[in-house]
Amino acid sequence: MSGESATRISAGEAFTAEDIAAAVEAGTRASDDVAKYAMRLGDDSLILAQRLGWWISRAPELEEDVALGNIALDLIGHARSFLTYAAGAWDKTEDDLAYFRAEAEFRSAHIVEQPNGDFARTIARQLVVSYFQYELYSRLVDSTDETLAAVAAKAIKEVAYHRDHSAQWVLRLALGTEESRRRMVDGLTLVWPYVEELFVDDELIDQLEGVAVRPSALREPFDALIGEVLAEAELEVPDVPGSIGGGRQGRHSEHLGYVLAEMQVLAREHPGASW
């Protein structure tokens, strides 16, 4: 439990990483378990934002440079809030966690570290993550941990748009041209093995009854909603075996190392510096 509320500001209003840092400073600390959970959520958003940031200046159309940039910005915002809260439990900062942890200390799921690929593959990844995060945050708003609840309340409004953005593109790519349909199908097929990991419960979740959202409980609504999008796009749910994952325990694919190498290089060149 987090002790006193970090959120004198009511949920959903301007609630930033700086607000949380101030609350941490004032004594609101997450327990070790809550911090570990917050770190998972933060890592998912951070790594995905890092991936999406690559698109800015490379998107198929200027409007998409802006849209993908917006989504990445939202995700960085969520990551900063979750990581600041987590870091507070260990007398660290968001940047300590983002820049000075090794690969095996990250708790992100495999799906967010998957390569961007072409636009369809990025959209397929967005579809899965945004629908997953929406279901997650829509329950996390009822967490007994008020800080997590408040971050979720702010995030959910933004993730609702991420969901809309990805679903609208899935329709366009799937029903657009033959090439776009082929690419959309390929994108979904490449991403789908990493869906399963998102819904796996583990010991940490068991220990945080009432605080954390149980991932397995999200699978059914996720499947139903994704099913609707895919049906409208005249697509099938890919029939591919799920990957065993391991990200929540720090076991990652080969991709994360490169993502972190790039993200952390400058900060690590100047340890202790402020920017």
């Binding site: 990483a17 940031g53 200027l62 802006v66 940039g69 990445a72 993200m263 400058l266 510096a273 920017w275």
Partner: peptide, 22 residues
């Protein structure tokens, strides 16, 4: 953007580059 040395700077830079697209 991918190498910005703090998360705050990363978000400011992203927003800036995105402004330029606008």
């Amino acid at each position: 953007i991918t190498r910005a040395p703090s998360l705050k700077r990363k978000s400011i830079l992203m927003a800036k580059v995105q402004d330029e697209a606008g």
